[in-house]
């Protein structure tokens, strides 16, 4: 049911990862992802994995939460790995051949790397969404994009941020409303659970039309309310919440780039 959808993935906590400035978190976690993809031998990959596991441990978010996110994407990982197995260099040694397909040691090696990287990528991005509220994420994205205003994209940055804010605000409201409308139509005997694809799509009309009409009405009223609160398209707007880089954030930067350096060294040296 709709009410089971938890919006945003924030997992309340007080860990150092939670406390890091969201802007720093976004940049550093992107950097981590880059480093993980740079790792190209077994030693550097193992080191990268250890670093990611340490991050997960520090975040204080239970491992099963990470596993949950992984589970959702597991079929894709298996599929990617499976394809990779057949695309190895034959010089690395043939494991076995079936019909026109050749499984090579190189292929298996590649598949292992590919799978590990995707898994680590998921863990890293989960660490970000579990430790940062959707609001902080929106804020951080707006501020990270703010340099774009110097190239004449000021209003674009502002509009994007405003859209994200309003979306976050209205998603729970609209989910609740969808539930209400579904219940109202079910009370009139609508069948939402059975039937073939065509019937099911048709059964959505009594829900989508009222929802759309309501969303339009809401947006119109919201626009008036915003106007009444002196909204002027972001011109001269100040923010209440100022983000400050703290000592903690500099340490976080240092640690992540040290990890990157080690991975590159391991790549080169071993």
């Amino acid at each position: 049911m709709l009410k089971d959808i938890t919006f945003g993935q924030y997992y309340e906590g007080n860990s150092p990862v939670h406390k890091t400035d969201p802007r720093a978190k976004i940049v550093l976690l992107i950097a981590m992802i880059v480093f993980v993809f740079l790792a190209n031998n077994i030693f550097s990959v193992v080191f990268a994995a250890l670093s990611v596991f340490t991050l997960m441990y520090i975040s204080g978010v239970p491992l099963r939460m990470y596993a949950k996110n992984l589970k959702a994407i597991l079929p894709i990982i298996i599929f990617t790995a499976f394809i990779n197995v057949f695309y190895g260099d034959k010089n690395t040694g043939i494991v076995f051949e079936v019909w026109k397909l050749t499984v090579t040691w190189g292929g298996i090696y590649r598949a292992f790397f590919m799978a590990t990287r995707i898994i680590l990528l998921i863990f890293i991005s989960s660490a970000l969404t579990y430790t940062t509220t959707p609001n902080d994420l929106t804020d951080a994205i707006e501020r990270l994009l703010s340099p774009l205003k110097y190239v004449g994209l000021k209003s674009a940055v502002h509009i994007l941020a405003m859209m994200m804010t309003i979306t976050l605000r209205f998603i729970p409201t609209l989910i609740e409303e969808t539930e209400k409308i579904m219940n109202a139509q079910k009370a009139r005997g609508a069948d939402l659970e059975n039937g073939n694809l065509k019937q099911r799509v048709k059964a959505l009309i009594p829900i989508l039309i009222p929802l759309l009409i309501s969303a339009i009405r809401r947006s119109y009223e919201l626009a008036e309310a915003m106007e009444c609160r002196c909204y002027n398209g972001g011109e001269g707007r100040q923010r209440m919440k100022q983000l400050h880089f703290s000592f903690r954030d500099y340490i976080a930067c240092g640690v992540v780039f040290a990890v990157g350096a080690v991975i590159i060294l391991l790549n080169i040296l071993l």
Partner: peptide, 24 residues
Amino acid sequence: VFQYPEYQLFEETVYADIAFGPKN
């Protein structure tokens, strides 16, 4: 009949909307 039931109207005509329940 839910609160504010008018928000569940969706058909093109009043007739079709009233007929939705019995049709189901």
